[in-house]
Structure formats: structure tokens, C-alpha cells
Amino acid sequence: AVAEQLAPVLPDGLREESLQLVSKLKDCSSSCAVDVSTMWWEAAGCRELCVVTACESSVSLWKPLGPNCWGRVYTWQLGEIPVIQIVPLPDSCNLACVALGDLEIGEIRLLLYSSENDSFKQSLVRTGNIKAALGLKDRRLVSSSRTVQEQHVEIVSFSETGRSRDGQTLMPPEETVSAFAEVEGMRDALVGTTAVNSVVIWNLKTGQLLKKMHVGYSYPASICHQAYSDSGLLFVVLSHPHAKESESCGNPAFRVVAFNPSTARSSGVLASSLPPGHAGRYLEGDVRGALAAAVLTSGAVAVWDLLLGQCTALLPPGPARGWALARWASTDACTGACLLAGQRDGTVCLYRY
């Protein structure tokens, strides 16, 4: 009864894909939602995909109780340093990281549930001037931190019970690393974007910095979201949060750029632009597989198929307030894609795509 169909509002009448509202949850105690994510939670032999919401001072875990009904399982109180973002650990269970700080990330904490003694805990993982952090497969976290003299790029891995194991250091590039992305299909490769608009490649096993490739002046201030290796090329999905609209490039939210790691040359493959006639530009977004979602300055959420370079669905801003967050949920392969769209008042809507 609560589900409603929201057909994509596209001027050319495309209705191939749509977003179906599955359920809605509202954190009544939170007046300012900062981030939203998902986390597998296993207790008493039951494993469920739960929603994690963050406000400035706490992070809450929500489990599904029934159709359109969510119950708050636990809230981690995080003290005086504000939460900046949730850093999910893909494929992990009962574990998630959270980044805290003022303007920049000052510390990363691990939030965990111990099924052995049915208790929720948190522990400090890293402190410093942290510029970027990403959860990797196999319960690992990579982060870059900077002092005046040097940059550290480090990986910490966790056991199933959340204990930190020996870390690994990756060779840092000269420039500050602004974002990381795993390379799909290449377990030992990691890419990053830097403050001077380069893409770098590491070998995760040895820590070697393998290559630095300039993205090109037509794609300013790039942030990497995802990478794929195919046919000897490295395809990197980039967004440009600070880019201005230009006549030559239009107003793209995401771009797929092909790099030849052997020669460091690159070429743009596809640009995923805002729907025609839609004002505003990219604010923030998320990529999973070939799907990208972004919040636009208009308050709308747009979804693109990156293989087609086409906007396939759009959530209008709504009568009250616009959307603030758009994240893809971790899901089983059989359940398809699920979009989490969040509003600043703490309302999170789950859409099946």
C-alpha cells in the first residue's frame, strides 16, 4: 500500500526504468542527517541487510521489521567531533567505519557488533589529517593522510571480530590523494585521483606505485568512483564536483575515461550529463557497477546507466525539501539494485531500481 511508482521524468518520454519506493524510515531524534549506507548484520544466526544512518554526533543501525517498517537496533554515540561520512566495508558483516572531523577527516572509527557477547562497540582506527578513505573488500580500509612534509597511504585490515591486523603502506605520490577506487576484476589493483588531477595506480600486494596518468585539462578536479580493467585498458568513472558548465563539455555529472596504463594516455569514452532542460549541476553521488546516482543542486536525484551514458530515472525534489544524499545499497545479486535517498531531516527512502 505504501509503495508508489515514480516514473522517470524525462522530456523524451523514456520510461524504460523507474524507481519504485519500497519503504521509508525516519530518524525522529535526528534533525540533520549526514550520511546513509547499508551494512550486513548477523545476530542469533540471522543475517540481514540493515540501513546505517549518520547524524553529526551518532550513527544508528536500522533493521527491517516488516513491510515499510524499520526498527532502530542500536545507536553509537560518537562524542564531540562531528561525523563527516560513513565508510562502509563491502562484503563485511557486523562492521562499518565512520569518519569524523571538522571540515577534514581527523579520525576514523570502527563500529562493530560482536555476536559472541551480543554487544556493540567502537574503536579508534586512525587519526591525522586524513584526505580520503575507502573501505575495500576483505575487511580492509585504505586512507591517505598528510603532514606538512609528507603523505602516508595506508591499509589497515580487520579480523571478523573487528581486531586490527598489521597494516600495509602504499607508496605515496607527490600530490595529495583525494579519492580511491577498487578496480573491478583486478584484486591487487587500486586507483586514486590526486589534487592535481592525476589518476594513480597501486599494486595492493606490494604497495608499489605503478603509474601516474594525467586526466587532462578538459576534466577538472576529478574524483574517482570506480574502475574496470578490460581489453588492456583501465576505465575509470570520474565525477567533477567543482566543474563549471561549459559549452564544449555541457554539464556532465559522471564521465568514463579510458586510460592506457602502458602509455599513460587517456581518452574520454562517455559523459553522463544532466537530463536536457534540467537546471543545476552535480553535488555529490555514488556509483555501483554500471549505475550512478547523484544529488543535483536543484534538489533532484538523477540515476544514469554509465554504459549508455543516459539518465534513466529522476527523483524530483519534492514539495518540501530536496534530496541531500544518494547511495546505492549493498544487495545480493538476486535482489537487484536499491537506491537510498536521504533528506536532511533524517528521512531515508529506499527505492528499487
Binding site: 599494486n203 603509474k211 585498458l233 592506457n260 602502458s262
Partner: peptide, 23 residues
Amino acid sequence: CSESDLGPISLNWFEELCAEAPP
């Protein structure tokens, strides 16, 4: 994009870069 834009492509680029890069 064509090979002429990007230069010669190697299917084993990762292994080759690992062999070339400083340890």
C-alpha cells in the same frame, strides 16, 4: 577510442608495470 589515440595496448599491463616499478 582507437589504439592510435592511446598508443600500443598491452593485455598484461598490470604485470608489466609491476615488473618496471621500483619495489
